[in-house]
């Protein structure tokens, strides 16, 4: 088994390769090697959700996985969801509902919510689902499912409104 093999993966559809210091987190790789600073470092320990990205369709904390572990993966960051000229539905809804203040947790909230909506569509249950086999997207469901993303400005009610708006727009 070779030591320190490179990782070949894709970020926002673009092929990339990492073969440096194995200690580099996916988060630091995205920010400092790729210049994708939309993914934020809030705690570096999986305690805030600011670094949330979507890997192979799943939302994950990019601070708690290594760049070298992404071999074969498809990583989507906030930059891959939309641009100021072409906002995603959810990004647009965050603007409309003022779903942020300082903006630092925002990319993580949006990446997380993007994947969360998909999880709901697949019928995944949550801690607060009354019926594990038939979760209904109540406000409490959305809150619980977004609880891995802290917002110190306290934009939670507006974030919830934005997500609900985007979900309704998608229907």
């Amino acid at each position: 088994m070779p030591l320190n093999p490179p990782a070949n993966f894709r970020v926002n559809g673009k092929a990339c390769r990492y073969s440096g210091d194995a200690r580099r987190s996916l988060l630091d790789f995205l920010r400092d090697d790729m210049g994708l600073y939309g993914t934020k470092k809030g705690c570096d320990h999986g305690q805030c959700g600011a670094c949330t990205v979507i890997v192979d369709g799943s939302r994950v904390n990019s601070c708690l996985t290594l760049a070298v572990m992404q071999d074969g993966c498809e990583v989507t960051t906030i930059e891959g969801l939309g641009s100021p000229e072409a906002l995603s539905v959810l990004q647009r809804a965050f603007v409309t509902h003022d779903g942020f203040q300082c903006g630092y947790c925002t990319p993580g909230q949006i990446c997380s919510a993007t994947a969360m909506i998909e999880e709901l569509a697949q019928g995944w249950p949550s801690h607060v689902s009354a019926d594990l086999n038939n979760p209904v997207p109540s406000d409490d469901e959305l809150r619980e499912r977004m609880s891995g993303n802290l917002c110190r400005c306290g934009a939670y009610p507006n974030i919830l409104a934005a997500i609900r708006d985007a979900m309704e727009a998608a229907r």
């Binding site: 994708l36 600073y37 939309g38 993914t39 934020k40 960051t77 906030i78 930059e79 969801l81 939309g82 641009s83 100021p84 906002l87 990004q91 965050f94 603007v95 003022d98 779903g99 942020f100 903006g103 925002t106 990319p107 949006i110």
Partner: peptide, 8 residues
Amino acid sequence: SGLKVCGV
């Protein structure tokens, strides 16, 4: 807001 929601 456009810059913030896009992480730029």
